[in-house]
Structures are given as structure tokens and as C-alpha cells.
Amino acid sequence: MSIQHFRVALIPFFAAFCLPVFAHPETLVKVKDAEDQLGARVGYIELDLNSGKILESFRPEERFPMMSTFKVLLCGAVLSRVDAGQEQLGRRIHYSQNDLVKYSPVTEKHLTDGMTVRELCSAAITMSDNTAANLLLTTIGGPKELTAFLHNMGDHVTRLDRWEPELNEAIPNDERDTTMPAAMATTLRKLLTGELLTLASRQQLIDWMEADKVAGPLLRSALPAGWFIADKSGASERGSRGIIAALGPDGKPSRIVVIYTTGSQATMDERNRQIAEIGASLIKHW
């Protein structure tokens, strides 16, 4: 058993032996400061991975655009179909130039040979490839079927209504393609630790998130040596930015963190910096 498999397999085991986890309101002070700095709403939640207890939250039940963070949920739905014998990670999917949409750094290189379902999930999560996400959405029946999958998990909040890139429109008060921090954190925890997916599929999902290559300026920039993080970021119109993550010290995840912001006029660099500073406060007061 690899170190990674050891880590995921023991998450339920550690729940019975973990020390009490204490919240630190200092992080919420930073979240509120980020709102002031960005001139935008910020949603935040910090969840204990083992118990599911909410440690801190700010606007946990307000809607925010999901942006590309939905791609983790999408690959969770794909893995659920794999577990049920309805899909194979090794199945190759062929597509054409007409299928390519904006920001497809991986799929645009494989027009001649296509990509496997496994490769598409990797591209969608680690590189946020939009065509990969659309191709995967097609395999499960489209955005409405992803919403149905989430409903069956008990998440009646999170919804996907459109495809890439239209889902990134982020119109104020538009509930399409949105979630709430509390709903996203709970759903992510179920995917990573619950019985919905097999152990192998849970491991695969967290491996893809751990290999994320496009979230460096966010929480990863504040991470001390030896800490673990598996994450997925997102960005969209109207100053929207977000990240969902499982992270913790000693090389294993122990908390879920979800951060969303929307409605800012700030630059992408400034949005990144504010999220990184929230992460730094979280780690300092861990």
C-alpha cells in the first residue's frame, strides 16, 4: 500500500482517536478583511474532515458561482459510474476541433488520438481543461445529471445548469451553476471519506486533486513544508474566484476548506493574494 493509499484508508480510523479540534476566530477576521479589500462577498467554511463538524464559517449558506470547482464533483460522478460498472477509466473518447472550447490546454493536443476517461478527469482537475469537462459531462448525461447525482448524495443546493464556458457567467442573483460553501464542503467530504465511492475511487479523486497544477498562487502558496493539500480552484466573470481543498499537517488531510468570492473589481492577482492570506491565517491558527 502506497503512502497515498495509506492516508485515505486511515481517514475513518483516525476519527475515533483524534484530539479535539478548536476553532480560531482570527481567520474570520481575515475573511472579513478580504471582503473589505476586494469590495466583494466572500464565503468561507472550515470543516473537520473526520467528524464533519463546522469549525468556522462566514456566509456559509449564501450562493456563489461554482466556477471550475464543479470539476471535482463531476469526476466524482464519473467515478461513481465506474464503480457501478457503467463506465471505464480506460475508455478512449474521440472528439473533433468543433468540440474544443476556450481554455483547453490538454485536449487541444489530442485531437488525433483522443483521450481516456482517466486522462480527461486528470486534465479537468489538474489543468482545469474546459473541453475535458464538457466531454465528461456528456458521458454522464449533461449538467442536469450532475445535479441529480448531487441530489442523490443529499446535496439539494449545488446545481450545474450549463456547459463550459457559459457556466462562468456569474450573474448576480442567478442561481444557475452555483453552490453554497456549507453544501460544497459537505459534499466534498462525502466524496473523499464516505461510502458513495469505493476506496480506490476515493483515492483516485484525491490523487487528481493533489496533482492540481493551476492553484499555486492560492492556499498552496501559504503551505508550510510537510503539509498535505488536494485542491481545485476556479475563476469566472465578475471578479469571481474560489477554491475547495482538503489539507492538513503531517502529510495527511484533516480539514476541508472552501473559499468563494464574487462581485469584485480587483485584479486576479489581488483576488489570489487575499485567498492566500486567508490560508496563511488558517495555518497560523491551526
Rank of each mutant, 00 (worst) to 15 (best):
K53N: 11
E119V: 01
T139R: 09
T262V: 11
H24D: 08
E175L: 12
V78Y: 12
A215T: 07
P60L: 07
M153Y: 06
Y103C: 06
R220Q: 02
L219V: 06
Y44V: 04
P12F: 12
A183Y: 07
G154V: 02
E175G: 07
L247S: 00
E56C: 07
T178D: 01
A182P: 05
R41I: 06
M180S: 15
H156L: 11
K284M: 11
H156R: 11
S236L: 03
T261A: 10
E169L: 09
D207S: 14
A200G: 14
E277K: 08
R41C: 05
R189Q: 14
E108G: 13
A215R: 03
I243G: 00
D250I: 05
T178Y: 02
R241L: 05
T198R: 08
I283Y: 10
R271A: 15
L150V: 10
T69A: 00
S201Y: 03
A246G: 02
E119R: 03
S51G: 08
P20T: 07
N152H: 15
E166L: 08
S80L: 12
Q203A: 11
D83Y: 01
F14L: 12
D83E: 09
A34V: 09
E56K: 05
M67T: 11
L282G: 01
M67G: 15
V101L: 07
G76A: 11
G242E: 00
D174M: 03
L218E: 02
R162L: 04
D212G: 05
T186V: 14
T187I: 03
K252Y: 11
G85T: 05
R41M: 09
M153S: 12
A222L: 05
S57H: 09
I243N: 00
D269L: 10
H151L: 10
L135G: 00
R271L: 15
S80V: 10
S281P: 01
Q203R: 14
G226C: 04
L89F: 07
D231A: 05
H285R: 06
R189T: 08
D83K: 01
N130A: 02
A40L: 05
G142V: 00
Q86R: 14
S122G: 09
L167M: 12
C75G: 08
T138A: 15
M184I: 10
D99Y: 08
G251F: 05
Q265N: 15
M180N: 15
T186L: 15
R241A: 06
P249T: 03
T147A: 03
W163P: 05
P224T: 02
P253T: 04
E145T: 10
M180T: 15
R41N: 08
S236D: 07
Y44L: 08
W208Y: 04
I243M: 05
R220H: 02
L219I: 14
D129N: 00
R159V: 14
Q86S: 14
P165G: 03
N173Q: 13
A40T: 09
G90P: 07
R41H: 10
T187R: 00
D231E: 03
W286R: 00
L188S: 03
F6V: 10
L218S: 03
D83V: 01
A9D: 06
A9V: 10
M180R: 10
G43E: 00
Y260L: 09
D269H: 12
S254G: 10
V78I: 13
R81I: 03
R255C: 01
D174V: 03
I93Y: 04
P172D: 14
L150W: 07
N130C: 05
R159H: 12
P253M: 12
R118T: 14
L188T: 06
V8Y: 15
G226D: 08
L199V: 15
E277V: 08
E166T: 09
L137M: 10
T147R: 07
A40D: 07
T147I: 05
P12V: 13
P217H: 09
L79S: 01
A245L: 01
R92H: 08
L137H: 01
E87G: 02
Q204A: 11
S281D: 05
L188G: 01
L160A: 07
P181C: 04
